[in-house]
Computed example of a mutant assay.
Amino acid sequence: MNSLKTVLVVDDEPRTRDGVKKTLETDLSGAVRVITAGSAAEATRVLEEEQVHLLITDIRMPEITGLTLVEKAQAKGASPVVIIISGHAVFEYAHHAIRLGVFQYLLKPLEKRKLLETVEQALKLDQSRHRQQAMERMVDQTLLELQESGEGRIGEPVLKAMRYVESHLQAPLGLREVAEVVHLNASYFSFLFKEQTGLTFLEYVTRCKLQKAKELLLATALPIGEIAAQVGYLTPKYFIKLFKENTGLSPSQYRKQMSGDNGPI
């Protein structure tokens, strides 16, 4: 498992660029991998090819400013934590940096202790972002919203059906069977469920089963076939197909990615 964080240092001054690289590699050895770029164009190529966790960039460079580099990176979907370094305390730059969500604005000449403290804080922020993203990918937001608002807008028969589904995920869970549990006609139950939850009964069952599967994939070392059985799918092949259709990843890929190929979450 690779837990190294990639840091991109961008400065057209070789002395500053190499000095920051040496400081980080010496004092944060084993924690960071440092890449340098002498121009915004070079930095843009790196950002397109690498997953950069922390971007440290000079603000004044010949081609474009460091802030424009940040804007371009954000426009392309890259979201590293950003530290701006500059030889000038220019209010206009600082204001722009704040608007872009820049983590810190450091003045040259860089003081070693301050640089290291700031980088360590920035890496912690990146880690917390990673944790948050992992949680968002793990939790079905639609199910979460239903649970949070259910008591207020969902009637007792549908709530009872939802609770029944959650406690019988290993079962096939047919519409007629659950309608009988809540003492409703199957057609009326189907209409009522969709009206009150915004999901068809089958959609709700599938989301619950896949949510439980995600939890088992991350919390246990159970084989995929066993997890499929625990959430009510008789054949692993169908479970894998359904999981991929809903998450974009196979169960094995999901487990591997979410378990932290890019570091612990």
Score class of each variant (00 low, 15 high):
Asn2Ala: 13
Lys5Phe: 00
Val7Ala: 12
Glu13Thr: 10
Arg15Leu: 05
Thr16Ser: 11
Arg17Trp: 00
Arg17Pro: 00
Gly19Phe: 01
Val20Ile: 13
Lys21Glu: 07
Thr23Pro: 00
Glu25Thr: 04
Asp27Asn: 15
Val34Lys: 14
Val34Leu: 10
Ala37Glu: 10
Ala43Glu: 04
Glu50Pro: 00
Glu50Gly: 06
His53Met: 09
Leu54Ile: 07
Leu55Trp: 07
Thr57Arg: 14
Ile59Thr: 09
Glu63Leu: 12
Thr65Cys: 12
Thr65Ile: 11
Thr65Asn: 14
Glu71Ala: 11
Lys76Gly: 10
Lys76Phe: 04
Ile84Tyr: 09
Ala89Asp: 14
Val90Ala: 14
Val90Leu: 15
Ala97Trp: 06
Leu100Met: 12
Phe103Met: 12
Gln104His: 14
Tyr105Gly: 09
Leu107Thr: 06
Lys108Met: 02
Lys108Thr: 03
Leu110Asn: 07
Glu111Arg: 14
Val119Thr: 06
Glu120Pro: 00
Leu123Cys: 06
Lys124Gly: 08
Lys124Met: 04
Lys124Asn: 11
Arg137Asp: 04
Asp140Gly: 03
Gly150Ala: 11
Glu151Leu: 11
Arg153Met: 09
Ile154Thr: 06
Gly155Asp: 04
Gly155Ser: 11
Pro157Thr: 01
Val158Trp: 03
Val158Ala: 06
Val158Tyr: 02
Leu159Gly: 06
Met162His: 02
Met162Trp: 01
Arg163Gly: 07
Val165Glu: 07
Ala171His: 12
Pro172Thr: 10
Arg176Cys: 01
Glu180Tyr: 06
Val182Ala: 08
Ser187Asp: 13
Lys194Trp: 01
Glu195Val: 02
Gly198Met: 08
Leu202Phe: 10
Leu202Trp: 10
Val205His: 03
Val205Gly: 08
Thr206Glu: 11
Arg207His: 04
Lys209His: 01
Ala213Cys: 04
Glu215Cys: 03
Leu216Met: 13
Leu218Gln: 08
Ala219Met: 10
Ala219Gly: 04
Thr220Asn: 05
Ile224Gln: 14
Gly225Gln: 13
Glu226Met: 10
Ala228Lys: 08
Val231Cys: 04
Tyr233Glu: 02
Leu234Asn: 11
Thr235Val: 05
Tyr238Gln: 11
Phe239Ala: 03
Ile240Met: 10
Gly248Trp: 00
Gln253Asp: 09
Arg255His: 01
Arg255Tyr: 02
Asp261Met: 14
Gly263Trp: 04
Pro264Ala: 15
